[in-house]
Structures are given as C-alpha cells and as structure tokens.
Design a protein around this nucleic acid. Structure first.
Length: 157
DNA sequence: GCCAACGTTGGC
DNA sequence: GCCAACGTTGGC
C-alpha cells in the first residue's frame, strides 16, 4: 500500500482552462509529447492528486486540483492522422505516448501565482520555478503540496 | 511580440 | 556520436 502522490500539470487556459475541465468533470489528459513528461504520466496512480497550472497567460499560476481516476494508457490521438497530436511513430501495437484520466476536484478560490510560488522557500526544488523549465507534467512532494494548498487557502480534508 | 532556454532532428 | 539548425515553450 502506497500513499497517494502529487503532481503538477500545465495547461494553456486559452486552449484548455480549469473552467473547461470543471464543466466536463472527468477528462483525458492527452497530447503529452515529451518523453520526460510521459514518463511521469506513466507513474501516476489512481487517487494521486494533480495541481492544475495555467501557463502562457497573463498571470500564470496554480488554479485548481484534479485527481487521477485512470492510470496511464495509450494516447489514441497519436494514432489519429487528423489530430494535431498525430505521431506516425506511435501505433496501437507499439504506443509511444500515453494519457491518464482526471477527475475535477476543485477550482481554488485563491490562485497561487508563479511569482508567489517563486518566493516560497519550500518550493525552491520544484521544477516549475527553476530556470528555463518547460516540463508540462512534474512530480510535487508532499511538503510542496502542503505549501501550495496553503497559498490557495485549500486543504484536502 | 520578444527572446532565452530547451528538446528534437538529421547531416556528417 | 557530435553538433548546428530548427521548432517549441512560456515568462515577461
């Protein structure tokens, strides 16, 4: 038996925002096309929590929380020629890319901006706040998760 | 819109 | 296997 873990997922709100996610309730997290991010995706387990982060927008930051409801399975958009995520090197027999299913948990009443996150000593090792970081799926330690939750005035209860 | 940082591609 | 060229990310 293992305790649940925490992750952070980036999304551009103009493409897919926390409100889009909230209105769906449960959704696939597809389109990850980076090997390091994919490897983290494959480590995600049912019950793990994932912070939802808005990137490439006016005020980037953590805006909500999700929970993993299905562990990694092949990302079918990589087989779909009409998808912008199509990858000819990925096939159903030998899938290269994976996705998980997430359930919306909450949109925080208070967001934790990137600027704010960068000022937290407890978060100095978080990939997100490090120089040149581009990873879209990353692990978050329990300590870091508590810090983010506190900034968002939220708790898991 | 700019541009630094990073990942990937492909010639050699 | 090196590395220049290119494409993308994402903060500012």
């Amino acid at each position: 038996m293992t305790a649940y873990r925490y992750w952070l997922l980036k999304s551009e709100p103009l493409t897919y925002s926390i409100d889009d996610f909230a209105s769906l309730g449960v959704d696939h997290w597809d389109g990850v096309r980076n090997y390091q991010a994919r490897n983290f995706l494959k480590e995600m387990q049912v019950g793990d929590y994932a912070f939802f982060y808005h990137s490439n927008c006016k005020v980037p930051g953590v805006v909500g929380l999700a929970r993993v409801v299905r562990a990694a399975y092949p990302d079918h958009t990589s087989f779909d020629k009409s998808s912008k995520y199509y990858d000819p090197k990925s096939s159903p027999d030998n899938p290269r890319w994976f996705m998980v299913d997430l359930e919306f948990v909450e949109k925080f009443g208070r967001e934790a901006s990137l600027t704010e996150l960068k000022h937290q000593p407890a978060l100095e090792d978080l990939r997100l706040v490090q120089r040149g970081n581009r990873l879209s799926v990353m692990p978050v330690t329990a300590k870091e998760a508590q810090c983010i939750l506190r900034l968002c005035e939220a708790s898991l209860v």
